[in-house]
Amino acid sequence: MSETTVQAPAALSQGEASVARRRAPRVNRSAIVMGLYLLFLMLPIYWLLNMSLKTNTEIVSSFSLWPQNLTFQNYVKIFTDESWYIGYINSLIYVVMNTAISLAVALPAAYAFSRYSFMGDKHLFFWLLTNRMAPPAVFALPFFQLYSSVGLFDTHIAVALAHCLFNVPLAVWILEGFMRGVPKEIDETAYLDGYSFGKFFVKIFMPLISSGIGVAAFFCFMFSWVELLLSRTLTTVDAKPIAAIMTRTQGAAGIDWGVLAAAGVLTIVPGALVIYFVRNYIAKGFALGRV
């Protein structure tokens, strides 16, 4: 509404102007609502950041809204101790692997679902989605045994494959939504022009749905990055994710709050970076291409 008034200020009739004036307080109310909501979102994160910049003695002995003796010691500890920072590397390795695998298998499948009807397609699609609904708790133990028996236990690829359980169905679902938006005439024209399926798919089709691919990659990254139950069950030493290493801070001498908080803050950073890069696609992306 405010947009229309901006676009056509000359045509602003008296009625419209009064509506605009009446609406003016509403804009402020929106700002207040959003302000409160964002504050609610940021407060716990701020508190974590606050704690990560304090020494343990300060955390336990006094209560302050900001660090009195600013220290970066907690971060230094994480960046210098290999058993700490290796966790971030492990997590990133399996997350990237998972994203690559999920997209590679989901792309052709999503194309098939969006373009062709074939025997059992609807049942197959729902069956795929049911895997997104499967509670990881149900699969934790069988996964452990399956990957142990094929010799993949405690490797990055094991976690990457396990996360495909929920990421592949999601990727198919998202990509199918985006592909439906591409007119079929494009495919037909390309085939008439003598493109082979593979060449058409890579050269013409994939650029057309690049935002969809980005969104699907974002979601795969997100769900693989935040998951803990499966990644913890499938690893012990070599591929242990940062989230599992964090539980180490509960030692005999109590909890090392400062380092725990610093590790927590650092797990937020990759997510924040990814969000920053895809910020213009987020809104459409969250609707899985269905708007």
């Binding site: 979102l41 940021m42 994160i45 989230a243 990814v274």
Partner: peptide, 15 residues
């Protein structure tokens, strides 16, 4: 708003 609101979604669940 979009960036700040997405932030909690990308924090590992145990964090």
């Amino acid at each position: 708003c979009l960036v700040v609101m997405s932030l909690p979604l990308l924090i590992p669940w145990n964090v």
